[in-house]
């Protein structure tokens, strides 16, 4: 190439490269989407019923229960998870083994089975009580809400414990040593110095678990906890509009999960500079 050539080339406009593969891929995706939309539009779905039940009081009450249960079960799961994580890292072998056993059991059995066990606790222990303080009938205490909370929270804790343990191990030993050196007890060093740093680290994974929990609450419909899915089931048992009501439930789960995902993105963006 001679210099005059390169001079003339430098004046040329740069065109976008043609990428036929992209066009074909996009066309196929749009086509598929079109088929799905057409299918739903022409299928045996009465969209007016979806619209009517979307804000039915029973459904909204179920939605409130779903959100409430997500919050309560995650709170229980996180607190117990922190406790078991600390036990796993304890110098006391009895505590370590107990925590391991707990995780082994609750990760090793299906959540549905655990919920059924909690719900039927009365068959094992007809009365629950503290010695000297008296007792109550188990069926009065273990309502569907309580059984669901225990089932989801205690199951969640088994998973969260591993996440928290990882977070605790990621904090440099020097952090706790500096706390001990100013005269904090081991417990104070954990609570004031190590845990706050570990919890910041585990916000992203725990955020994902919150989102899973929203959907997991639907399992509790089998033990009569009146969350969203149970709500739509009660209605379609009466009016037989099964698909319409399942779509109602799907819309609400998607709405809640979308909001949470948005919140998670904002939170992680907010936390990044501090990391």
């Amino acid at each position: 190439m001679n210099p005059s050539d390169s001079l003339s080339v430098s004046g040329l406009r740069i065109a976008t490269r043609r990428r036929p593969g992209r066009w074909i891929g996009a066309a196929l995706a749009l086509l598929a989407l079109g088929f799905i939309i057409r299918g739903f539009a022409l299928g045996q779905i009465d969209w007016s019923i979806v619209g009517r039940f979307l804000t039915a009081p029973a459904i909204l009450a179920g939605l409130v229960n779903t959100v409430l249960m997500t919050i309560c079960a995650m709170a229980l799961g996180l607190s117990l998870g922190v406790m078991f994580a600390v036990m796993m890292l304890s110098p006391n072998p009895v505590l370590r083994v107990s925590a391991r056993l707990y995780i082994w059991f609750f990760r090793g059995t299906p959540l549905l089975l655990q919920l059924l066990l909690w719900f039927n606790l009365a068959l094992v222990f007809p009365r629950l009580g503290v010695p000297l303080l008296g007792s109550v009938r188990t069926v009065d205490v273990i309502t569907p809400f309580v059984a669901t909370l225990l089932g989801l929270g205690i199951n969640q804790a088994a998973y969260t414990a591993e996440v928290v343990r990882g977070g605790l191990l990621a904090i440099d030993r020097g952090q706790a040593e500096a706390a001990l050196a100013v005269g904090m007890t081991r417990f104070a060093a954990l609570r004031r110095i190590v845990l706050p740093q570990a919890l910041r680290l585990i916000i992203p994974p725990v955020g994902n678990e919150v989102i899973s929990m929203v959907k997991l609450t639907s399992v509790a419909s089998v033990i009569q906890f009146s969350e969203v899915l149970r709500g739509v089931q009660n209605i379609y048992y009466a009016n037989a509009r099964i698909i319409e009501l399942l779509i109602v439930a799907a819309i609400w789960y998607l709405a809640v999960v979308t909001l949470l995902t948005l919140g998670q993105t904002l939170l992680e963006r907010h936390l990044r500079p501090a990391a």
């Binding site: 020097g174 952090q175 040593e177």
Partner: peptide, 11 residues
């Protein structure tokens, strides 16, 4: 005690 790697608490 003053440590080689400072060990200030970053939070």
């Amino acid at each position: 005690m003053v440590f080689q790697r400072f060990n200030l608490w970053p939070h």
